[in-house]
């Protein structure tokens, strides 16, 4: 087991975000974490990457309980992970080449010619070797995400985490990112965790899925199993129904009463 999340509770300002999550990520597989916006998907990633600590429960990553780790141990654990951010999060004062080279320069004493070769190999893998000299501001959304992917794999991580990798992409870029996620998993054997709400896309690449709803796991299994689920929350999410367990209306006072009293100051 690469990631083992056991009965995790987490709240911000006493507002519960996660309420007893149980989740396992097995080595070498692509695990999808799905769910509507605001269900705690990104918080779960923050727990796995040790950016925040659970109020209750345990998060074990690569055999280490993240709550027990000190600063340097957290950094040592993170060197074994890569993460692709929703917007790429490329460093804007460096060109594409330097962005990909950044973790290597920071963590190794490799000679420059070797770093250059390594960076070009990774950029070739994402199809952007020709864009090495461009600045992040000159890249499209899809290209920025591919560069960020090259940066995430440059240190050969054991786990690769994708935070909403498909958001805002055109169909071609979306297809490219999907192919790359699959390729990274199959060719390099990297364990992948993909957080997204794109059911269609995830169902074609994920081996295992978790559906979160209101800070809990509403359903788990392969994407095919999730499709056959009887759970109302799962059905609403998969069919994209506007009303259901996740209501269309935000909690509000009675509509008629509010309209009738609208004249009062």
């Amino acid at each position: 087991m690469v990631v083992d999340v056991r009965d995790v509770h987490y709240a911000i300002d006493k507002r519960p975000i996660l309420s007893g999550i149980d989740l396992r990520v097995r080595r070498g597989l692509i695990t999808a974490i799905m769910g509507p916006s605001g269900t705690g998907k990104t918080t779960l990633l923050k727990l796995i990457t040790a950016q925040v600590t659970a109020d209750r429960g345990q998060v074990v990553v690569l055999g280490r309980d993240v709550a027990q780790l000190k600063g340097s141990e957290i950094y040592a654990l993170r060197k074994r992970m890569g993460m692709l951010f929703q917007n790429g999060a490329l460093l804007t004062d460096m060109d594409v080449f330097e962005n990909v080279a950044f973790p290597v320069r920071e963590h190794t004493d490799l000679p420059d010619p070797l770093i250059r070769k390594l960076v070009f190999i990774k950029l070739q893998a994402v199809g952007l070797r020709g864009a090495a000299g461009l600045m992040p501001g000159e890249l499209s959304g899809g290209m920025a995400r591919r560069v960020a992917l090259a940066r995430a794999i440059v240190m050969d991580p054991e786990i690769l985490i994708y935070d909403e990798p498909f958001v805002g992409l055109d169909p071609i870029s979306l297809g490219v990112i999907m192919r790359l996620i699959k390729q990274m998993n199959e060719a390099l054997g990297i364990t992948s965790i993909v957080v997204s709400h794109d059911v269609q896309e995830l169902s074609t690449i994920a081996h295992n899925s978790y559906l979160l709803s209101s800070g809990r796991v509403a359903a788990a299994g392969s994407p095919q199993e999730l499709r056959k689920s009887d759970s109302e929350a799962v059905r609403q999410f998969i069919t994209g129904s506007p009303d259901g367990p996740v209501p269309f209306h935000y909690p509000a006072p009675d509509y008629n009463t509010q309209l009738l009293t609208a004249d009062e100051p």
Binding site: T49, Q51, R78, F85, A89, L91, F102, H107, A148, R151
Partner: peptide, 8 residues
């Protein structure tokens, strides 16, 4: 945050 995740 990306730097922190890259252990920098």
């Amino acid at each position: 945050t990306a730097m922190e995740i890259m252990a920098v």
